[in-house]
Write a protein that binds this DNA or RNA. Structure first.
Length: 270
DNA sequence: AATCATCCCTGAACGC
DNA sequence: TGCGTTCAGGGATGAT
């Protein structure tokens, strides 16, 4: 499940392979019924890639007077290759002026690619309303802390992308554990909010250093595994001992998501 | 306006 | 062995 660290790893991998290239053809290799996920791709053709950016979990490419928006969904995988990628579910190919192909494979088809006028995000409300980048100076403690005094359920608001961008199910659970906060907590005081603020940055920065978490499907821009799965504290560790206190990790369902926590380190008061 | 459940998808794991 | 069921979850959507 590609979250901020995975998408950032892919971005840094692909940037040198894509920036400066011109798109010479766009091919959508999927049945007509799914074409709604791949919109206006022909508008990329004839345009040059000037930058590869990331916003939350979205990958954005500046193409002359257009913008390419790519979301990996759950199982999306991208890469740039001279030879045909040996993958089962290649949905889209962009052929480049150096003979390489920029491909998008996606087993479960939750991912999407749109080509739009720059900044035209009406078809993607989550991107349009995206909260601050947690590893940038736009992520301001005072604002974060103030918002969390009014919140009912931490997990759902952290997954929502509006208060802070880029967190998904894995890193929400990891950050909450590091901050010693139960996912169903709300109405944080300032000390608790600051713990969470610091924890979010720490967990994401470490995962970027480890090139992302390969739980199952994630691959970086070169097709390789990440390393961060070896360092997770709670995610997918049900029944295993907490690395802090040895209490067995518990799995719950919160905000319709599998949720892992340490009941000792992350108590739910009352 | 904000919150919540439902749906989209495929394949692995599981139960009988 | 094989078949049917359950589960994984980011984001759009419709309902409350």
């Amino acid at each position: 499940m590609p979250e901020l660290p995975e998408v950032e790893t892919i971005r840094t991998d692909l940037e040198p392979l894509l920036v400066g290239r011109k798109v010479v053809a766009a091919e959508v290799c999927v049945e007509e019924a799914y074409r709604g996920r791949y919109v206006n791709l022909e508008e990329a053709v004839g345009r040059r890639i000037h930058a590869l950016r990331r916003r939350g979990k979205y990958l954005l490419a500046d193409l002359d007077d257009r913008e390419l928006i790519l979301h990996l969904g759950m199982t999306g995988q991208v890469g740039v290759k001279l030879l045909e990628p040996a993958l089962r579910h290649v949905r889209v190919r962009f052929r480049l002026d150096d003979g390489a192909v920029f491909f998008f494979a996606d087993q479960r088809r939750f991912g999407k690619i749109h080509v739009v006028a720059p900044g035209e995000y009406a078809a993607m409300p989550t991107l349009a309303a995206m909260g601050p980048e947690p590893l940038s100076s736009d992520f301001v403690l005072a604002r974060f802390s103030m918002a969390l005094t009014r919140v009912n359920s931490l997990k759902s608001v952290l997954l929502g992308q509006k208060l802070v961008s880029g967190l998904g199910n894995i890193y929400v659970d990891e950050a909450l554990h590091l901050a010693r906060l139960h996912p169903e907590r709300g109405h944080l005081n300032r000390v608790e909010a600051e713990r969470l603020y610091v924890a979010i940055r720490e967990v994401l920065a470490e995962a970027v250093r480890n090139r992302g978490t390969t739980f199952k499907d994630y691959r970086d821009g070169m097709g390789n595994y990440g390393r961060n799965q070896d360092f997770l504290s709670v995610y997918d560790r049900e029944g295993e001992p907490c690395r802090t206190c040895r209490t067995p990790i518990v799995k719950l369902r919160v905000a319709q998501r599998g949720t892992y926590l340490c009941p000792n380190c992350q108590p739910l008061p009352r």
